[in-house]
Measured scan of single mutants.
Amino acid sequence: RKEMTAACTPRRRIINLTSVLSLQEEINEQGHEVLREMLHNHSFVGCVNPQWALAQHQTKLYLLNTTKLSEELFYQILIYDFANFGVLRLSEPAPLFDLAMLALDSPESGWTEEDGPKEGLAEYIVEFLKKKAEMLADYFSLEIDEEGNLIGLPLLIDNYVPPLEGLPIFILRLATEVNWDEEKECFESLSKECAMFYSIRKQYISEESTLSGQQSEVPGSIPNSWKWTVEHIVYKALRSHILPPKHFTEDGNILQLANLPDLYKVFERC
Score class of each variant (00 low, 15 high):
residue 1 R to C: 15
residue 3 E to G: 11
residue 5 T to E: 07
residue 8 C to N: 15
residue 9 T to Y: 06
residue 10 P to V: 10
residue 11 R to L: 12
residue 12 R to D: 11
residue 12 R to K: 09
residue 12 R to E: 13
residue 12 R to G: 12
residue 13 R to P: 05
residue 13 R to G: 06
residue 14 I to S: 13
residue 14 I to E: 14
residue 15 I to G: 04
residue 15 I to N: 06
residue 15 I to F: 07
residue 16 N to Y: 06
residue 18 T to R: 12
residue 19 S to A: 07
residue 24 Q to W: 09
residue 26 E to K: 09
residue 29 E to W: 07
residue 29 E to H: 12
residue 30 Q to I: 15
residue 31 G to L: 07
residue 33 E to K: 08
residue 33 E to F: 08
residue 33 E to I: 05
residue 36 R to T: 12
residue 37 E to P: 02
residue 38 M to I: 13
residue 38 M to T: 07
residue 38 M to P: 00
residue 39 L to W: 02
residue 41 N to E: 15
residue 41 N to S: 06
residue 42 H to S: 09
residue 43 S to G: 12
residue 44 F to H: 02
residue 46 G to I: 09
residue 47 C to N: 12
residue 48 V to M: 08
residue 50 P to M: 06
residue 51 Q to Y: 03
residue 52 W to T: 03
residue 55 A to T: 10
residue 55 A to L: 09
residue 56 Q to T: 15
residue 57 H to L: 05
residue 58 Q to A: 15
residue 58 Q to M: 14
residue 59 T to Y: 07
residue 59 T to H: 10
residue 60 K to M: 15
residue 60 K to L: 11
residue 62 Y to T: 00
residue 63 L to Y: 05
residue 63 L to P: 01
residue 65 N to K: 02
residue 65 N to V: 01
residue 65 N to L: 00
residue 66 T to V: 00
residue 68 K to A: 06
residue 72 E to V: 06
residue 72 E to L: 04
residue 72 E to H: 13
residue 76 Q to W: 01
residue 77 I to Y: 02
residue 77 I to W: 01
residue 80 Y to F: 13
residue 82 F to K: 00
residue 83 A to R: 04
residue 84 N to S: 05
residue 85 F to T: 09
residue 85 F to E: 03
residue 88 L to D: 05
residue 88 L to I: 12
residue 88 L to E: 05
residue 89 R to L: 14
residue 92 E to F: 08
residue 92 E to I: 09
residue 92 E to C: 14
residue 93 P to V: 12
residue 95 P to V: 09
residue 95 P to M: 11
residue 95 P to K: 11
residue 95 P to Q: 15
residue 95 P to D: 12
residue 97 F to S: 11
residue 97 F to A: 12
residue 98 D to P: 11
residue 99 L to K: 04
residue 99 L to C: 10
residue 103 A to P: 00
residue 106 S to Q: 11
residue 106 S to R: 08
residue 107 P to D: 13
residue 107 P to M: 13
residue 109 S to A: 14
residue 109 S to P: 07
residue 109 S to Y: 11
residue 110 G to H: 12
residue 112 T to W: 10
residue 113 E to P: 13
residue 114 E to Q: 12
residue 114 E to L: 10
residue 115 D to F: 07
residue 117 P to Y: 08
residue 118 K to C: 07
residue 118 K to V: 06
residue 119 E to N: 12
residue 122 A to K: 00
residue 123 E to V: 12
residue 123 E to Q: 10
residue 125 I to S: 07
residue 126 V to R: 09
residue 127 E to Q: 08
residue 128 F to S: 06
residue 128 F to W: 09
residue 129 L to K: 01
residue 130 K to R: 12
residue 131 K to N: 12
residue 132 K to L: 01
residue 135 M to Y: 04
residue 136 L to G: 01
residue 136 L to I: 05
residue 138 D to P: 01
residue 139 Y to L: 06
residue 139 Y to W: 04
residue 140 F to P: 00
residue 141 S to D: 00
residue 141 S to N: 09
residue 141 S to E: 05
residue 142 L to P: 00
residue 142 L to V: 07
residue 143 E to P: 06
residue 143 E to I: 11
residue 145 D to G: 05
residue 146 E to D: 11
residue 146 E to W: 14
residue 147 E to Q: 12
residue 148 G to V: 04
residue 148 G to L: 09
residue 149 N to Q: 12
residue 150 L to E: 01
residue 151 I to Y: 13
residue 152 G to K: 05
residue 152 G to R: 04
residue 152 G to D: 02
residue 153 L to S: 01
residue 154 P to F: 01
residue 156 L to K: 01
residue 157 I to G: 00
residue 158 D to I: 13
residue 164 L to F: 14
residue 164 L to V: 08
residue 164 L to M: 15
residue 164 L to P: 07
residue 166 G to N: 04
residue 168 P to E: 03
residue 169 I to L: 13
residue 170 F to K: 01
residue 174 L to T: 04
residue 174 L to K: 01
residue 175 A to R: 04
residue 176 T to V: 09
residue 177 E to F: 09
residue 177 E to N: 07
residue 177 E to V: 09
residue 178 V to E: 02
residue 178 V to P: 04
residue 179 N to G: 07
residue 179 N to P: 06
residue 181 D to E: 12
residue 182 E to Q: 14
residue 182 E to P: 05
residue 183 E to M: 03
residue 183 E to S: 04
residue 183 E to G: 04
residue 184 K to S: 08
residue 185 E to M: 11
residue 189 S to V: 05
residue 189 S to W: 03
residue 190 L to W: 04
residue 190 L to S: 02
residue 191 S to V: 08
residue 191 S to W: 00
residue 192 K to V: 06
residue 193 E to V: 08
residue 193 E to W: 03
residue 197 F to D: 00
residue 199 S to H: 00
residue 200 I to L: 08
residue 200 I to M: 13
residue 201 R to M: 00
residue 201 R to Y: 01
residue 204 Y to D: 03
residue 205 I to A: 05
residue 205 I to W: 04
residue 210 T to P: 07
residue 210 T to I: 07
residue 211 L to P: 09
residue 211 L to Y: 13
residue 212 S to T: 13
residue 213 G to T: 12
residue 214 Q to L: 08
residue 221 S to K: 13
residue 221 S to M: 15
residue 222 I to W: 14
residue 223 P to D: 11
residue 224 N to K: 14
residue 226 W to A: 01
residue 228 W to S: 06
residue 230 V to N: 01
residue 232 H to V: 03
residue 235 Y to G: 01
residue 237 A to P: 00
residue 239 R to H: 03
residue 240 S to Q: 13
residue 241 H to A: 08
residue 241 H to C: 05
residue 242 I to D: 01
residue 244 P to R: 02
residue 245 P to H: 03
residue 246 K to Y: 11
residue 249 T to P: 06
residue 252 G to V: 03
residue 253 N to I: 15
residue 253 N to F: 14
residue 254 I to V: 14
residue 259 N to I: 05
residue 260 L to K: 12
residue 261 P to F: 05
residue 264 Y to V: 11
residue 266 V to Q: 15
residue 268 E to C: 05
residue 269 R to L: 05
residue 269 R to A: 10
